[in-house]
Nucleic acid binder design. Sequence first.
DNA 1: CCTATATTTGGCGGACCGTTCAACAAAAGG
DNA 2: CCTTTTGTTGAACGGTCCGCCAAATATAGG
Lengths: 193, 193
Amino acid sequence: MGRSRGFDIDDALDAAVRTFWEHGYEASSMQTLCDAMRVQPGSAYAAFGPKRALFVAALRRYAETVSADAVRRITTPVSGLQGLRDYFDHLIEAMVDGNRRWGCLITNSLVEFAERDPELAGLVGLHLANLRAAFEAALARAAAAGELRPGAGPEAAALLVAVAQGMNVLAKSRPGRAPLRAIVDATLAGLVA
Amino acid sequence: MGRSRGFDIDDALDAAVRTFWEHGYEASSMQTLCDAMRVQPGSAYAAFGPKRALFVAALRRYAETVSADAVRRITTPVSGLQGLRDYFDHLIEAMVDGNRRWGCLITNSLVEFAERDPELAGLVGLHLANLRAAFEAALARAAAAGELRPGAGPEAAALLVAVAQGMNVLAKSRPGRAPLRAIVDATLAGLVA
DNA sequence: CCTATATTTGGCGGACCGTTCAACAAAAGG
DNA sequence: CCTTTTGTTGAACGGTCCGCCAAATATAGG
Protein backbone atom coordinates (compact mmCIF):
# COMPACT_ATOMS: atom_id res chain seq x y z
CA MET A 1 0.00 0.00 0.00
CA GLY A 2 0.97 3.64 0.17
CA ARG A 3 0.93 6.42 -2.35
CA SER A 4 1.12 5.25 -5.97
CA ARG A 5 3.65 6.61 -8.41
CA GLY A 6 2.57 9.73 -10.21
CA PHE A 7 4.35 9.08 -13.47
CA ASP A 8 4.84 6.20 -15.87
CA ILE A 9 8.27 4.59 -15.65
CA ASP A 10 8.54 3.85 -19.36
CA ASP A 11 7.36 7.31 -20.37
CA ALA A 12 10.01 8.84 -18.15
CA LEU A 13 12.57 6.43 -19.55
CA ASP A 14 11.65 7.40 -23.09
CA ALA A 15 12.24 11.04 -22.18
CA ALA A 16 15.61 10.11 -20.68
CA VAL A 17 16.47 8.17 -23.84
CA ARG A 18 15.74 11.20 -25.99
CA THR A 19 17.85 13.46 -23.77
CA PHE A 20 20.85 11.12 -23.60
CA TRP A 21 20.48 10.34 -27.29
CA GLU A 22 20.53 13.97 -28.34
CA HIS A 23 23.09 15.41 -25.93
CA GLY A 24 25.14 12.50 -24.70
CA TYR A 25 25.75 11.46 -21.08
CA GLU A 26 28.02 14.16 -19.70
CA ALA A 27 26.14 16.97 -21.38
CA SER A 28 22.83 15.76 -19.90
CA SER A 29 22.59 17.12 -16.36
CA MET A 30 20.21 15.56 -13.86
CA GLN A 31 18.42 18.91 -13.95
CA THR A 32 17.83 18.61 -17.69
CA LEU A 33 16.88 14.96 -17.40
CA CYS A 34 14.38 15.62 -14.62
CA ASP A 35 12.83 18.46 -16.63
CA ALA A 36 12.48 16.18 -19.66
CA MET A 37 11.03 13.38 -17.54
CA ARG A 38 8.67 15.82 -15.74
CA VAL A 39 9.92 14.43 -12.44
CA GLN A 40 11.69 15.97 -9.46
CA PRO A 41 15.25 14.88 -8.61
CA GLY A 42 14.18 13.04 -5.48
CA SER A 43 11.62 10.99 -7.41
CA ALA A 44 14.13 10.23 -10.11
CA TYR A 45 16.66 8.96 -7.60
CA ALA A 46 13.99 6.92 -5.85
CA ALA A 47 12.90 5.29 -9.11
CA PHE A 48 16.17 4.84 -10.95
CA GLY A 49 19.06 5.39 -8.56
CA PRO A 50 22.03 7.57 -9.49
CA LYS A 51 22.65 8.99 -12.93
CA ARG A 52 24.65 6.06 -14.25
CA ALA A 53 21.87 3.63 -13.34
CA LEU A 54 19.35 5.84 -15.11
CA PHE A 55 21.56 5.75 -18.16
CA VAL A 56 21.81 1.97 -18.09
CA ALA A 57 18.01 1.74 -17.83
CA ALA A 58 17.66 4.19 -20.72
CA LEU A 59 20.13 2.21 -22.82
CA ARG A 60 18.19 -1.00 -22.17
CA ARG A 61 14.96 0.74 -23.10
CA TYR A 62 16.56 2.00 -26.32
CA ALA A 63 17.77 -1.48 -27.19
CA GLU A 64 14.34 -3.00 -26.57
CA THR A 65 12.46 -0.43 -28.64
CA VAL A 66 14.41 1.54 -31.23
CA SER A 67 17.18 -0.96 -31.81
CA ALA A 68 14.96 -4.04 -31.74
CA ASP A 69 12.65 -2.44 -34.30
CA ALA A 70 15.55 -1.85 -36.63
CA VAL A 71 16.95 -5.34 -36.28
CA ARG A 72 13.51 -6.81 -36.92
CA ARG A 73 13.59 -5.24 -40.36
CA ILE A 74 16.59 -7.39 -41.18
CA THR A 75 15.18 -10.65 -39.91
CA THR A 76 11.54 -10.37 -40.99
CA PRO A 77 11.65 -10.57 -44.81
CA VAL A 78 12.15 -14.03 -46.26
CA SER A 79 14.56 -12.57 -48.80
CA GLY A 80 17.85 -11.84 -47.05
CA LEU A 81 18.72 -9.14 -49.53
CA GLN A 82 15.34 -7.49 -49.01
CA GLY A 83 16.02 -7.52 -45.27
CA LEU A 84 19.25 -5.60 -45.80
CA ARG A 85 17.52 -3.12 -48.08
CA ASP A 86 14.67 -2.59 -45.61
CA TYR A 87 17.09 -2.01 -42.76
CA PHE A 88 19.24 0.52 -44.56
CA ASP A 89 16.31 2.29 -46.22
CA HIS A 90 14.68 2.80 -42.86
CA LEU A 91 18.01 3.94 -41.42
CA ILE A 92 18.36 6.62 -44.08
CA GLU A 93 14.84 7.93 -43.61
CA ALA A 94 15.23 8.10 -39.84
CA MET A 95 18.53 9.94 -40.26
CA VAL A 96 17.02 12.53 -42.58
CA ASP A 97 13.60 12.93 -40.95
CA GLY A 98 13.41 11.08 -37.68
CA ASN A 99 15.32 10.82 -34.45
CA ARG A 100 18.30 9.04 -35.92
CA ARG A 101 19.56 12.49 -36.83
CA TRP A 102 21.20 12.16 -33.41
CA GLY A 103 22.93 9.03 -34.62
CA CYS A 104 22.48 5.89 -32.55
CA LEU A 105 22.49 5.87 -28.76
CA ILE A 106 24.49 2.63 -28.71
CA THR A 107 27.11 4.01 -31.08
CA ASN A 108 27.31 7.29 -29.18
CA SER A 109 27.67 5.42 -25.90
CA LEU A 110 30.51 3.29 -27.20
CA VAL A 111 32.38 6.41 -28.27
CA GLU A 112 31.74 8.30 -25.04
CA PHE A 113 32.14 5.47 -22.52
CA ALA A 114 34.46 2.78 -23.83
CA GLU A 115 37.58 4.12 -22.11
CA ARG A 116 36.23 4.60 -18.63
CA ASP A 117 33.37 2.14 -18.17
CA PRO A 118 34.22 -1.40 -19.29
CA GLU A 119 30.94 -2.80 -17.97
CA LEU A 120 28.89 -0.40 -20.05
CA ALA A 121 31.13 -1.04 -23.04
CA GLY A 122 30.42 -4.75 -22.65
CA LEU A 123 26.68 -4.09 -22.69
CA VAL A 124 27.08 -2.11 -25.89
CA GLY A 125 29.15 -4.94 -27.32
CA LEU A 126 26.25 -7.33 -26.77
CA HIS A 127 23.90 -5.17 -28.81
CA LEU A 128 26.46 -4.92 -31.59
CA ALA A 129 26.77 -8.70 -31.57
CA ASN A 130 22.99 -8.90 -31.98
CA LEU A 131 23.10 -6.68 -35.03
CA ARG A 132 25.93 -8.71 -36.46
CA ALA A 133 24.05 -11.98 -35.97
CA ALA A 134 21.03 -10.57 -37.78
CA PHE A 135 23.24 -9.49 -40.67
CA GLU A 136 24.89 -12.91 -40.81
CA ALA A 137 21.55 -14.70 -40.95
CA ALA A 138 20.27 -12.40 -43.68
CA LEU A 139 23.43 -12.87 -45.71
CA ALA A 140 23.15 -16.64 -45.34
CA ARG A 141 19.56 -16.54 -46.57
CA ALA A 142 20.52 -14.29 -49.45
CA ALA A 143 23.44 -16.50 -50.46
CA ALA A 144 21.27 -19.61 -50.38
CA ALA A 145 18.74 -17.86 -52.63
CA GLY A 146 21.46 -16.92 -55.08
CA GLU A 147 20.95 -13.21 -54.48
CA LEU A 148 24.66 -12.61 -53.81
CA ARG A 149 27.60 -12.66 -56.18
CA PRO A 150 29.82 -15.75 -55.92
CA GLY A 151 32.26 -15.39 -53.04
CA ALA A 152 30.02 -13.12 -51.00
CA GLY A 153 28.60 -14.69 -47.86
CA PRO A 154 27.92 -14.32 -44.14
CA GLU A 155 31.50 -13.13 -43.49
CA ALA A 156 30.44 -9.78 -44.96
CA ALA A 157 28.41 -9.20 -41.77
CA ALA A 158 31.46 -7.47 -40.26
CA LEU A 159 31.40 -5.00 -43.13
CA LEU A 160 27.69 -4.28 -42.70
CA VAL A 161 28.12 -3.60 -39.00
CA ALA A 162 30.99 -1.23 -39.75
CA VAL A 163 28.98 0.58 -42.42
CA ALA A 164 26.01 0.97 -40.07
CA GLN A 165 28.27 2.40 -37.35
CA GLY A 166 29.92 4.70 -39.86
CA MET A 167 26.55 5.97 -41.02
CA ASN A 168 25.53 6.57 -37.42
CA VAL A 169 28.59 8.79 -37.04
CA LEU A 170 28.08 10.63 -40.31
CA ALA A 171 24.39 11.15 -39.57
CA LYS A 172 25.42 13.62 -36.87
CA SER A 173 26.72 15.98 -39.55
CA ARG A 174 23.13 16.02 -40.92
CA PRO A 175 23.84 14.90 -44.49
CA GLY A 176 21.13 14.84 -47.13
CA ARG A 177 19.52 11.69 -48.42
CA ALA A 178 21.87 11.37 -51.39
CA PRO A 179 25.20 10.88 -49.55
CA LEU A 180 23.63 8.21 -47.36
CA ARG A 181 22.11 6.50 -50.39
CA ALA A 182 25.54 6.47 -52.00
CA ILE A 183 27.00 4.59 -49.05
CA VAL A 184 24.29 1.96 -49.06
CA ASP A 185 24.30 1.56 -52.83
CA ALA A 186 28.07 1.10 -52.95
CA THR A 187 27.90 -1.41 -50.11
CA LEU A 188 25.22 -3.54 -51.70
CA ALA A 189 26.78 -3.21 -55.15
CA GLY A 190 29.77 -5.10 -53.83
CA LEU A 191 27.58 -7.90 -52.53
CA VAL A 192 24.76 -8.57 -54.97
CA ALA A 193 25.10 -10.71 -58.05
CA MET B 1 61.33 41.30 -25.40
CA GLY B 2 60.41 39.76 -22.05
CA ARG B 3 60.66 36.35 -20.54
CA SER B 4 60.60 33.48 -23.04
CA ARG B 5 58.13 30.65 -22.79
CA GLY B 6 59.19 27.78 -20.57
CA PHE B 7 57.47 25.03 -22.54
CA ASP B 8 57.07 24.03 -26.15
CA ILE B 9 53.68 24.88 -27.61
CA ASP B 10 53.52 21.82 -29.86
CA ASP B 11 54.64 19.47 -27.11
CA ALA B 12 51.89 20.80 -24.87
CA LEU B 13 49.43 20.53 -27.72
CA ASP B 14 50.42 16.92 -28.31
CA ALA B 15 49.73 16.19 -24.66
CA ALA B 16 46.34 17.90 -24.97
CA VAL B 17 45.62 15.86 -28.11
CA ARG B 18 46.33 12.63 -26.23
CA THR B 19 44.10 13.64 -23.33
CA PHE B 20 41.16 14.75 -25.48
CA TRP B 21 41.65 11.74 -27.73
CA GLU B 22 41.55 9.25 -24.90
CA HIS B 23 38.89 10.78 -22.66
CA GLY B 24 36.87 13.10 -24.86
CA TYR B 25 36.18 16.78 -24.30
CA GLU B 26 33.81 16.85 -21.33
CA ALA B 27 35.68 14.18 -19.42
CA SER B 28 38.99 16.07 -19.79
CA SER B 29 39.09 18.69 -17.03
CA MET B 30 41.43 21.66 -17.29
CA GLN B 31 43.14 20.19 -14.24
CA THR B 32 43.84 16.95 -16.08
CA LEU B 33 44.87 18.79 -19.23
CA CYS B 34 47.28 21.06 -17.36
CA ASP B 35 48.81 18.07 -15.60
CA ALA B 36 49.30 16.29 -18.93
CA MET B 37 50.78 19.41 -20.52
CA ARG B 38 52.99 20.05 -17.48
CA VAL B 39 51.73 23.62 -17.36
CA GLN B 40 49.86 25.67 -14.77
CA PRO B 41 46.31 26.87 -15.50
CA GLY B 42 47.41 30.50 -15.82
CA SER B 43 50.01 29.64 -18.43
CA ALA B 44 47.60 27.45 -20.34
CA TYR B 45 45.04 30.24 -20.52
CA ALA B 46 47.72 32.73 -21.53
CA ALA B 47 48.88 30.47 -24.34
CA PHE B 48 45.67 28.93 -25.63
CA GLY B 49 42.71 30.84 -24.20
CA PRO B 50 39.71 29.01 -22.75
CA LYS B 51 39.11 25.28 -22.95
CA ARG B 52 37.23 25.32 -26.21
CA ALA B 53 40.04 27.22 -27.94
CA LEU B 54 42.55 24.71 -26.60
CA PHE B 55 40.42 21.95 -28.05
CA VAL B 56 40.27 23.63 -31.45
CA ALA B 57 44.06 24.00 -31.43
CA ALA B 58 44.44 20.35 -30.43
CA LEU B 59 42.06 19.27 -33.19
CA ARG B 60 44.07 21.25 -35.75
CA ARG B 61 47.28 19.70 -34.47
CA TYR B 62 45.74 16.24 -34.75
CA ALA B 63 44.63 16.93 -38.32
CA GLU B 64 48.09 18.17 -39.30
CA THR B 65 49.96 15.23 -37.80
CA VAL B 66 48.02 12.02 -37.19
CA SER B 67 45.32 12.52 -39.79
CA ALA B 68 47.61 13.94 -42.48
CA ASP B 69 49.96 10.96 -42.04
CA ALA B 70 47.08 8.56 -42.59
CA VAL B 71 45.75 10.35 -45.66
CA ARG B 72 49.25 10.45 -47.13
CA ARG B 73 49.24 6.66 -47.19
CA ILE B 74 46.30 6.79 -49.59
CA THR B 75 47.74 9.36 -51.95
CA THR B 76 51.42 8.32 -52.05
CA PRO B 77 51.40 4.93 -53.86
CA VAL B 78 50.98 5.09 -57.62
CA SER B 79 48.62 2.14 -57.45
CA GLY B 80 45.31 3.36 -56.13
CA LEU B 81 44.42 -0.04 -54.78
CA GLN B 82 47.74 -0.22 -52.97
CA GLY B 83 46.98 3.17 -51.42
CA LEU B 84 43.73 1.82 -50.00
CA ARG B 85 45.49 -1.27 -48.67
CA ASP B 86 48.25 0.78 -47.05
CA TYR B 87 45.73 3.08 -45.38
CA PHE B 88 43.57 0.34 -43.92
CA ASP B 89 46.52 -1.87 -42.95
CA HIS B 90 48.05 0.99 -41.01
CA LEU B 91 44.67 1.75 -39.46
CA ILE B 92 44.32 -1.81 -38.20
CA GLU B 93 47.80 -1.90 -36.68
CA ALA B 94 47.31 1.44 -34.95
CA MET B 95 43.99 0.23 -33.56
CA VAL B 96 45.50 -2.94 -32.16
CA ASP B 97 48.87 -1.60 -31.00
CA GLY B 98 48.99 2.17 -31.27
CA ASN B 99 47.00 5.16 -30.17
CA ARG B 100 44.09 4.50 -32.51
CA ARG B 101 42.80 2.21 -29.81
CA TRP B 102 41.10 5.45 -28.72
CA GLY B 103 39.47 5.65 -32.13
CA CYS B 104 39.92 8.86 -34.07
CA LEU B 105 39.79 12.30 -32.48
CA ILE B 106 37.85 13.68 -35.45
CA THR B 107 35.27 10.90 -35.30
CA ASN B 108 34.95 11.23 -31.55
CA SER B 109 34.54 14.98 -31.85
CA LEU B 110 31.77 14.67 -34.41
CA VAL B 111 29.87 12.33 -32.12
CA GLU B 112 30.38 14.46 -29.02
CA PHE B 113 29.96 17.94 -30.52
CA ALA B 114 27.71 17.83 -33.58
CA GLU B 115 24.53 18.77 -31.72
CA ARG B 116 25.79 21.75 -29.78
CA ASP B 117 28.69 23.28 -31.72
CA PRO B 118 27.95 23.76 -35.43
CA GLU B 119 31.22 25.61 -36.01
CA LEU B 120 33.28 22.74 -34.66
CA ALA B 121 31.15 20.27 -36.59
CA GLY B 122 31.92 22.20 -39.75
CA LEU B 123 35.64 21.95 -39.07
CA VAL B 124 35.30 18.20 -38.64
CA GLY B 125 33.34 18.08 -41.87
CA LEU B 126 36.26 19.64 -43.71
CA HIS B 127 38.61 16.91 -42.54
CA LEU B 128 36.14 14.24 -43.58
CA ALA B 129 35.89 15.87 -47.01
CA ASN B 130 39.69 15.65 -47.24
CA LEU B 131 39.61 11.95 -46.53
CA ARG B 132 36.84 11.49 -49.04
CA ALA B 133 38.78 13.34 -51.74
CA ALA B 134 41.84 11.14 -51.15
CA PHE B 135 39.68 8.04 -51.48
CA GLU B 136 38.11 9.35 -54.67
CA ALA B 137 41.49 10.03 -56.25
CA ALA B 138 42.80 6.61 -55.28
CA LEU B 139 39.69 4.92 -56.68
CA ALA B 140 40.05 6.85 -59.93
CA ARG B 141 43.67 5.76 -60.25
CA ALA B 142 42.73 2.17 -59.46
CA ALA B 143 39.89 2.17 -61.97
CA ALA B 144 42.13 3.59 -64.68
CA ALA B 145 44.67 0.85 -63.99
CA GLY B 146 42.00 -1.83 -64.26
CA GLU B 147 42.42 -2.83 -60.62
CA LEU B 148 38.68 -2.54 -59.93
CA ARG B 149 35.81 -4.70 -61.05
CA PRO B 150 33.63 -3.21 -63.81
CA GLY B 151 31.12 -0.79 -62.35
CA ALA B 152 33.25 0.12 -59.33
CA GLY B 153 34.62 3.65 -59.39
CA PRO B 154 35.16 6.88 -57.46
CA GLU B 155 31.57 6.91 -56.21
CA ALA B 156 32.60 4.17 -53.78
CA ALA B 157 34.52 6.83 -51.81
CA ALA B 158 31.40 7.41 -49.72
CA LEU B 159 31.50 3.76 -48.71
CA LEU B 160 35.17 3.90 -47.76
CA VAL B 161 34.63 6.97 -45.57
CA ALA B 162 31.74 5.23 -43.83
CA VAL B 163 33.79 2.08 -43.28
CA ALA B 164 36.67 4.09 -41.84
CA GLN B 165 34.33 5.91 -39.45
CA GLY B 166 32.71 2.64 -38.49
CA MET B 167 36.08 1.10 -37.72
CA ASN B 168 36.98 4.13 -35.62
CA VAL B 169 33.88 3.47 -33.54
CA LEU B 170 34.43 -0.26 -33.25
CA ALA B 171 38.09 0.24 -32.34
CA LYS B 172 36.93 1.61 -28.99
CA SER B 173 35.67 -1.84 -28.05
CA ARG B 174 39.29 -3.05 -28.46
CA PRO B 175 38.70 -5.79 -31.03
CA GLY B 176 41.48 -8.11 -32.11
CA ARG B 177 43.20 -7.90 -35.47
CA ALA B 178 40.94 -10.51 -37.11
CA PRO B 179 37.58 -8.69 -36.86
CA LEU B 180 39.13 -5.55 -38.30
CA ARG B 181 40.77 -7.53 -41.09
CA ALA B 182 37.40 -9.06 -41.92
CA ILE B 183 35.88 -5.60 -42.40
CA VAL B 184 38.65 -4.43 -44.71
CA ASP B 185 38.75 -7.68 -46.68
CA ALA B 186 35.00 -7.66 -47.25
CA THR B 187 35.13 -4.01 -48.30
CA LEU B 188 37.89 -4.51 -50.84
CA ALA B 189 36.42 -7.78 -52.05
CA GLY B 190 33.43 -5.85 -53.28
CA LEU B 191 35.64 -3.43 -55.20
CA VAL B 192 38.55 -5.31 -56.77
CA ALA B 193 38.29 -7.24 -60.01
C1' DC C 1 -12.86 7.90 9.43
C1' DC C 2 -7.71 6.90 10.80
C1' DT C 3 -3.23 4.72 10.23
C1' DA C 4 0.55 3.04 7.68
C1' DT C 5 3.31 3.39 3.77
C1' DA C 6 5.11 5.24 -0.54
C1' DT C 7 6.03 9.27 -3.35
C1' DT C 8 6.85 14.09 -4.06
C1' DT C 9 8.79 18.28 -2.91
C1' DG C 10 12.42 21.79 -2.99
C1' DG C 11 16.42 22.90 -1.39
C1' DC C 12 20.96 21.84 0.68
C1' DG C 13 25.94 20.32 0.84
C1' DG C 14 30.27 19.07 -0.71
C1' DA C 15 32.97 18.48 -4.70
C1' DC C 16 34.63 19.81 -8.90
C1' DC C 17 34.28 22.74 -12.85
C1' DG C 18 36.42 26.59 -15.92
C1' DT C 19 38.52 30.81 -15.26
C1' DT C 20 41.00 34.80 -13.25
C1' DC C 21 44.37 37.51 -10.75
C1' DA C 22 47.99 39.59 -8.03
C1' DA C 23 52.51 38.42 -6.76
C1' DC C 24 56.75 36.58 -8.43
C1' DA C 25 60.52 35.17 -11.81
C1' DA C 26 63.18 35.58 -15.77
C1' DA C 27 64.84 37.25 -20.07
C1' DA C 28 65.85 41.14 -23.45
C1' DG C 29 67.25 46.05 -24.38
C1' DG C 30 69.78 49.96 -22.95
C1' DC D 1 73.89 47.34 -13.81
C1' DC D 2 68.54 48.66 -14.06
C1' DT D 3 64.16 48.88 -16.44
C1' DT D 4 60.70 46.92 -19.11
C1' DT D 5 58.15 43.33 -20.73
C1' DT D 6 56.64 38.90 -20.82
C1' DG D 7 55.70 34.26 -18.69
C1' DT D 8 54.79 31.53 -14.50
C1' DT D 9 52.78 30.54 -10.27
C1' DG D 10 49.17 28.62 -7.30
C1' DA D 11 45.54 30.04 -4.74
C1' DA D 12 40.87 31.39 -4.97
C1' DC D 13 36.43 32.74 -7.19
C1' DG D 14 31.65 32.06 -8.56
C1' DG D 15 28.91 28.61 -10.61
C1' DT D 16 27.18 24.11 -11.62
C1' DC D 17 27.24 19.47 -10.79
C1' DC D 18 25.37 15.04 -8.51
C1' DG D 19 23.30 13.00 -4.82
C1' DC D 20 20.53 13.19 -0.67
C1' DC D 21 17.13 14.21 2.98
C1' DA D 22 13.40 15.95 6.16
C1' DA D 23 8.95 17.63 5.61
C1' DA D 24 4.74 17.54 3.16
C1' DT D 25 1.40 15.00 0.36
C1' DA D 26 -1.40 11.40 -1.43
C1' DT D 27 -2.96 6.70 -1.64
C1' DA D 28 -4.39 1.96 0.04
C1' DG D 29 -6.07 -0.78 3.67
C1' DG D 30 -8.59 -1.41 8.02
